[in-house]
Design a protein around this nucleic acid. Structure first.
Length: 236
DNA sequence: ACCCAGGGTCATA
DNA sequence: TATGACCATGGG
């Protein structure tokens, strides 16, 4: 009997301990197979709102992003044409709560320029190959690997695993990773060991973030942690 | 008064 | 390629 895939084992433990996280469009219904149905983003509006959210949430708590998105909606600005025409300083003021607001206002403008430029409209994007699309996103100044993959997974329903600092920290703590691996090396491991599934990748990343905030912080507190038995470097 | 949050870019060696 | 400075608010 082969030992259970560690990546799947951790997924199951995190899911049963924390429960479904309800990140971007999720229905949260259990199917008979035990999978979660993820509400696929439908159309340009979902794609756009999730992409802007992915940019705004860089290195900041989601709560602050939600407030900013609400302000943009309130002023009727959360669509491509409005955000293209709004002045950068007004945009920055509206997204103040997300921190780095001047940088992020530029990033949003850069994303929009790409979106409206060189044939990259929604129909073209939807038809694009995932790898080519990822390269396109990475070419936008302000969109790095994690944001690009978040957009691919959560806004465009592509089976791409999103790696973040928690992922590295948690998996290094029980010896699957050394801690020195690159983003793409870690991503390849997940792609290899977790069968491609938009729903599972969606939930897994959200669970890792939830777990990281509660337990596997920089100053860890492994008591009551559902994967404490897997931790090699257990502190306190 | 710290520390951290659903990162990324740029300059430097 | 690998660090370090920088961006900056809000909550604990």
């Amino acid at each position: 009997m082969t030992p259970m895939n560690q990546f799947l084992l951790v997924y199951r433990k995190l899911l049963s301990f924390h429960g479904p996280q309800g990140w971007w469009p999720i229905v949260n219904q259990r199917s008979f197979s035990g999978e979660y149905h993820v509400g696929a983003p439908r159309g340009e509006a979902d794609f756009f709102e999730i992409s802007i959210g992915a940019i705004l949430t860089q290195n900041v708590a989601w709560k602050n992003v939600d407030a900013a998105l609400c302000r943009l909606k309130r002023d009727g600005l959360l669509d491509p044409d409005s955000l293209l025409s709004v002045r950068a300083d007004r945009l920055a003021r509206l997204i103040r709560s997300t921190g780095y607001y001047n940088e992020k206002a530029k990033k949003i403008k850069n994303f929009l320029a790409w979106y409206r430029g060189h044939m990259a409209n929604y129909a073209a994007i939807s038809a694009m190959d995932t790898h080519a699309l990822r390269q396109e996103l990475l070419s936008v100044n302000g969109i790095g690997p994690e944001t690009a993959d978040s957009i691919l997974l959560y806004a465009l329903n592509r089976p791409v695993f999103v790696v973040d600092a928690y992922t590295k920290r948690i998996f290094a703590r029980f010896g699957i990773l050394s801690g020195g691996e690159s983003y793409s090396e870690i991503q390849e491991l997940f792609h290899k060991h977790v069968r491609p599934s938009v729903g599972k990748y969606n939930e897994y990343h959200a669970l890792i973030v939830a777990h990281g905030k509660d337990f596997c912080k920089k100053r860890p507190s492994c008591e009551q942690c559902c994967i404490a038995d897997l931790c090699i470097k257990r502190i306190a």
